[in-house]
Design a protein around this nucleic acid. Structure first.
Lengths: 347, 347
DNA sequence: ATCATTAAAAAAACCTCTTTACAAAATTTG
DNA sequence: CAAATTTTGTAAAGAGGTTTTTTTAATGAT
């Protein structure tokens, strides 16, 4: 790899001059030498040593993307398939702005923090953080931070959260279910944190507005760890008979549930109506096609990246950006066609 | 951020000594000072400036992962959902070995090459490369390279290709279809390059072995660009009536086809048998559950990363590593239950 | 011709860390 | 006890850029 020093030597000039040409400093160098240098640079295909440049300029042009991955019971990382879409959106935006992306996957916040400071990244995008992880990171290293889908950090001025109108999404969907004639509607999820909580609240809101009482048992908890999944689905499918519709917290769970119901001879939507959330391939390719709440994941990534870029440019940014959702009415929610088996399980 | 110089100053010693302690140089520093320095380092939570270190050592501890993304007709990047699984496997392996991962997505080989040399990455993992891209990259920058799923580069000693027994996979599957009684079997794909070609060849091999003649029209070409997809599926579904089974080049296409067939009133497997390739969520969650060829994508990522790590350590590695496949017999391939509509389309 | 002004180029300092060469102190050897 | 060797630590020289300061050369005004 050729260096500036060598170029300067070969052209009989100082490194300063070469550097100035590279940085397009107007009025620092004569037209004649500028052209001479530029041609030579092209000829030898000069590429600057990024470490030297970063060291000198005290910046890195690196944006860190830290994914706090979930792990299953065997400590294997679970990568949501939608992560690739998110990454795609972020990377494209960042690259077009001349930055690079360093990817870091971990469930250990400490490690992520160390990584951040080691690499002296210019900014950070955090995804999947819970609790106050992001706050801690940002307080320690005063770098611009954008979080994605992180509810616990709202209201903090340090950084921006790019999220979704999760509450509104389920609210609209459950309202739609009610308008179809459903009264016994369950909610399926595996936890009540962050995004899932907001979606649950939307469900509750729609229920309340329609004067439907929510009982604790209406929350169907799925245990996604692979070893338990079949047992868990058995339980959920039988409980499902108590309802005419189920609002699922994600398309993944909606499709998982539909498969399980089909396997047990219960038809969707004839036997029970199912709605999902996310609108990914899983639901659109399934038959019956899944009625769901749409979100644009790539857009989320792009907005997150753009926001970070703005912060890096010193612009003010909102503390919270909330993307809208859209109902996608397909084939899995219809008017109820059977009676709910009220309380059949109660003793 | 505290620097070595400052630490040395505060402890009244030279930077060399501090550096030696950091690098655990035995016999270069007394036990007493070693402890003193170590304690101070911990106290101030010293983190080395990676740019300075890399500059001095002429290495980067960065492994570049370059994904050559496909684009659809609107120039949007298409990120395969399985990419996240691949990335997950690579990142985990790399990180455990003390390396970092820089992600670069592009369909422009030139840009990828520039990126590589700019960042002076220690090694490269290439995915989705076609033609001789990888060769060109590796000849220009003499860095260790591992390619994933790149057929065109076999036999070149410069780097290792981590691939799959694609040919064997479809071969076994089509053999299985034939053993079920199928004679009219089509192959569905969108191209005949690289991986898809190998899978096609497996199909041909099984056909030939069974004495079945392959006709050009038995290759069903799907046009995945979103604007054309419905039209394309119409055509494929009607052509499909000429066959009792279809071997699809991927689970994605298998499921897409099943949805399309279902929408047009053709039932799987009653009306037609379908097999996929990859064994991802899409197929396992669909009902009827997809009969397919399994590959372990995460494992692929891990092996690729491990191989690169070996190269970096100076170990010899094979030029080609081929991972095995496994038939996953589920519900979409049964014995044929209707007659193929031979030649109904021929005029 | 002299001095101030400006343009262009070069020299020098710096960014942080590693490494080499060397010096001082401590220890061993004869 | 002097010489040789080892231990411990320092100073200085890079690594490849950027940036500030200085020098040189050219121009113009007086």
């Amino acid at each position: 790899m050729i260096t500036i020093k060598e170029i300067a030597q070969r052209l009989n000039m100082s490194t300063t001059t070469v550097s100035n040409v590279i940085h397009g400093k107007e009025g620092e160098v004569s037209e004649e030498t500028r052209i001479k240098v530029q041609e030579f640079l092209k000829e030898v295909d000069y590429v600057p040593n990024i470490n030297a440049r970063n060291l000198a300029q005290n910046e890195s042009k690196i944006i860190g993307l830290a994914l706090k991955a979930r792990v299953d019971k065997y400590e294997n990382l679970i990568m949501d398939p939608f992560v690739s879409e998110l990454i795609g959106g972020i990377e494209e935006t960042i690259r077009n702005a001349g930055y690079f992306m360093m990817l870091y996957i971990s469930r250990d916040t400490e490690k992520i923090m160390r990584h951040v400071s080691t690499w002296n990244v210019d900014g950070l995008i955090l995804f999947g953080m819970l609790d106050d992880d992001g706050v801690r990171v940002s307080e320690k290293y005063k770098k611009p931070i954008v979080c994605i889908d992180t509810y616990s950090m709202e209201g903090l001025k340090h950084f921006t959260n790019v999220g979704l109108d999760d509450l509104g999404g389920t609210y609209e969907m459950v309202k739609y279910m009610i308008s179809c004639g459903h009264r016994k509607i369950a909610f399926l999820s595996d936890n009540t944190n962050g995004v899932d909580l907001a979606r649950f609240q939307g469900y509750i809101k729609a229920l309340r507005e329609a004067g439907i009482q929510f009982e604790q048992e209406d929350f169907l908890k799925i245990r996604p760890a692979s070893a338990e999944i079949e047992e868990s689905l058995d339980e959920i499918c039988i409980k499902a008979m108590n309802y005419t519709a189920i609002m699922c917290v994600s398309d993944l769970y909606a499709v998982t549930l539909m498969s399980a119901l089909t396997d047990r001879g219960i038809r969707v939507p004839e036997g029970i109506s199912i709605a999902g959330f996310d609108d990914n391939m899983l639901g659109s390719l399934y038959r019956p096609a899944l009625t769901t709440v749409h979100q644009d994941v790539k857009e989320k990534g792009i907005i997150a990246a753009e926001t970070l870029l703005k912060k890096l440019a010193g612009e003010e940014t909102a503390a919270q950006i909330t993307l809208p959702t859209k109902l996608v009415i397909r084939d899995t929610v219809t008017k109820p066609r059977r009676l709910p088996l009220y309380n059949a399980l109660k003793n």
